[in-house]
Design a protein around this nucleic acid. Sequence first.
DNA 1: TCCGATCCATACGCCCCCGTATGCGAACGG
DNA 2: CCGTTCGCATACGGGGGCGTATGGATCGGA
Lengths: 171, 171
Amino acid sequence: MEEGLRALAGGGPDAVRVESLARALGVTKGGFYWHFDDRSTLLAEMLDAWERIAVDEAIRQVDATPGGGREKLMRLFGLASSSGQLLKVELAVRDWARRDKAVARRLKRVDNRRMDYMRALFGDFCTDDADIESRCLVAMCLFIGSNFVVADHRGRSRADVFAGAVRRLVQ
Amino acid sequence: MEEGLRALAGGGPDAVRVESLARALGVTKGGFYWHFDDRSTLLAEMLDAWERIAVDEAIRQVDATPGGGREKLMRLFGLASSSGQLLKVELAVRDWARRDKAVARRLKRVDNRRMDYMRALFGDFCTDDADIESRCLVAMCLFIGSNFVVADHRGRSRADVFAGAVRRLVQ
DNA sequence: TCCGATCCATACGCCCCCGTATGCGAACGG
DNA sequence: CCGTTCGCATACGGGGGCGTATGGATCGGA
């Protein structure tokens, strides 16, 4: 499973090959097919594992920190940018979901749970529902999109520019 | 080339297969290898074609419309969301660039040219350089990220929420 | 009429990958 | 000491994909 998530993070679902995973673990296909029915079973279980870590665990960590909505949002953004491996899996899953309906359904669950959580946080200092919703979308897009944008920033660092955008967002 | 871009849009670079493209066009591999040296040559030429259309053509169209920075930005956002095929290619290229350095270099050129254009447009009604840069990043992330986010919006349509975010951005 | 360029089709060898069938040692309970 | 179960390894058939080599077919021009 771990090796599978590594491959997914590095090369997308097409890179999750039974034989290459087995090689990476120093075993052969026989070993793989002892633990999993087939390749699709592995992929499904990988998504299950990811969902648990990427949502439940993240919300738990943010909720454990003190402060109001603004502080928790900042903490959430900090946490989202920190774990590189998890982030790469997420990006791979999102691209995957564009082509696979089952993955898209699962990702929709994930997104809706995160959005619900963020709505509560923004609701701490915003009153208008439409405004909250737009801010949530911008937050999600910043979190995801900034990893797909490779532009330079005229001497500024990406982190600085990103921080400026977040400041605008929680104003 | 067109069939290749279709395949890229639909399934990423791994879906651009010599034999399946040939089948889709009603010919065999022999035909393909007459027009292209190999598969990687096709991929490179596809990226060339995409770059011309996605940047030069887009800027040309937006510049042709009257109005100031705000109006052109709105026009740019409208145009970006309109052409579905081109958008799908762009998303596929962005995910591709995460794994392929050559693609990443090319995408960086594209992003920088777009950012330069947007900086000029935002500069029409913003004075602070750091603010302009953050707004440009948010614009790019909204444009890209909204296609990777599959959350629902409590009865609101994605288009409405997106429009709200854009209004905040060009305020 | 013939020749060369153009635009393919056919056929081949090779590699990677999936899933299955079967063998096999090591550990373990009785 | 022995049978069973676990955790693989080995071997196989089948499919798909890449690139190459070579064999036409058509068609315009000399």
